[in-house]
Nucleic acid binder design. Sequence first.
DNA 1: GTGAAAGCGCTAACAG
DNA 2: CTGTTAGCGCTTTCAC
Lengths: 337, 337
Amino acid sequence: MSSPAQRRTTIKDVAELAGVGVATVSRVLSGGSASAETRERVLDAATKLDYRPSALGRNLRQQRSGGIALLVPDITDNFYARLADGVLSCARSYREPVTIGVTGDDPEQEADLVGALLEQSMDRVIAVPSGDGEMWAPALRAGLSVVFADRRVWRDPVPGQQRVLDEVPAVLADDRAGVRTAVEYLTGLGHRKIGFLARHGQTQRTRAFRTAMGELLDEELVVPARASRDSAYAAASGLFQRRPDITAVLTGDNMLGEAAVLAARELDVRIPRDLSLVMFDDVPWAELCAPPLTVVAQPAQDIGYRAAELVMRQGRRPKTVMLPTQLIVRGSCGPRR
Amino acid sequence: MSSPAQRRTTIKDVAELAGVGVATVSRVLSGGSASAETRERVLDAATKLDYRPSALGRNLRQQRSGGIALLVPDITDNFYARLADGVLSCARSYREPVTIGVTGDDPEQEADLVGALLEQSMDRVIAVPSGDGEMWAPALRAGLSVVFADRRVWRDPVPGQQRVLDEVPAVLADDRAGVRTAVEYLTGLGHRKIGFLARHGQTQRTRAFRTAMGELLDEELVVPARASRDSAYAAASGLFQRRPDITAVLTGDNMLGEAAVLAARELDVRIPRDLSLVMFDDVPWAELCAPPLTVVAQPAQDIGYRAAELVMRQGRRPKTVMLPTQLIVRGSCGPRR
DNA sequence: GTGAAAGCGCTAACAG
DNA sequence: CTGTTAGCGCTTTCAC
């Protein structure tokens, strides 16, 4: 049997040992004013007792639990893992714990998680949002400060609330430029029938694709997928079978890219001979793939880091941050044959 | 400017509206005994006010913040991401928030993080441990219930503490069997000079490799790497250059596998013609690789899920759980040439 | 079955 | 500059 946990050292113990009041201890420890001598006595006592202020007491008093919450669609997706890593790395420098929730890109689950956060009195959230304005507006009103990462929320149909959501700062990759660069690269190679595989949530990228394609756009080649791997595969496979005339495809994220490679292989579509492929997001395996994949790289870790910075400095009304993407040409694209 | 956050509804409000005392509300809401009529009145009031009990108050009162903490070496490593996903998925069914910390496989950072947990009064931790017994024993004494995942802690040199650490339940992949199967597969193909790339932390696997190799073991072919990608690459590249006579290699995790593929390509070592490769952990890209990688699959998500179950039911003295691995043969191994 | 009251550890307001 | 005190929201004795 394990021994019973001993009672925690409290601020009272420190005060007693130092021969001062508890308020003084609190002040000294949080950098308030105190005479040099008092300060030393307090610090001494605290060290001697190995005193660790209880976050519980502080949190209750301040009516807010510290820490920052992070909501991502899927933590096993390397992109979100890197994003999370960035958040974690920034949060560490503030000594703030990070609570992670997985939404599965499902507004309902997201709403659930936000509810849980409120229950915990968390007041800082970084989210890759799945829900729309209707779901985030109440959270905002409840007083938590939100930063969106990777995506922002769709414009809300209700006029009055649109303003609210525009107030939510966001850290985004420059989807417009990324998509445009990729499309230009592909058209430069002679491709005309270019497919686009994207998640339902990737509104910005889808829109950017439509714009970038201009005259060339064929709505039938723009195919949406749900959040799962299976759905990604189904979308890719479906597109390739339905429209064997396409010569290039751009995918909105790395799991769709993976699905495209798999589906192509299954259908005996050769990359890049029969089909050129550009994938959004440069994951480590893109280079190991056969052929190595041409990608639109995104600074995932940076996105997370910057988002964490923003959510920590809620004071200085921060604007939306847009981070650049980069086309990395490897071996998955060829000229139209 | 955003509107000021309105005051939270407290238990007092509910009590007032229901015309009962706060104690009664508390009891009803936590499933205690109450007359049917009272219960209904309370529930009604709670619903009407949309009352959410504050975790802050409860936590302080109970001297423990709920939730479970998860410590992994690297969240961008797909294996740990899947493990985390398993934890998250189990924790959700208990409605417990999960706080994630990244240790970088560094005992010092790990100790830091545990300190932070204690400060937060977290009392449930799932850890992929980097530190040794000396670091975990105090945490245990401080009263938190720990479950190890993926690895357990090295036997402690101090005799008295060994027992303590054996009391920590652990959820592990069956490294012994996994390594043995892989080695037998390789020797079955005729390989004799087999290299092993492993992290410092992968003691069990390294030990298993030595055992499995028996007579064939060449200590020079067992090479350790630190946690980083760079270190993994250096280890692989170094081994291949130093000992071009090896014909097969087993890697202790997926990042080492990735490094091996990259290093081999760089040195113009062909897989599987010149070198057979078996990688621990079946990541999604293993199939996309050229050639597709033969792997020892581990139930990462299950490991996380089971660990979370254990840490939630600290009551029923749980034993260590060992989960099976599976050799998945793909295209990265060939006969010794 | 129910209510009154104590108190978890801390910080902020106030008085000295 | 420093100590006293109130009280954050909740659960848990302890009377009734």
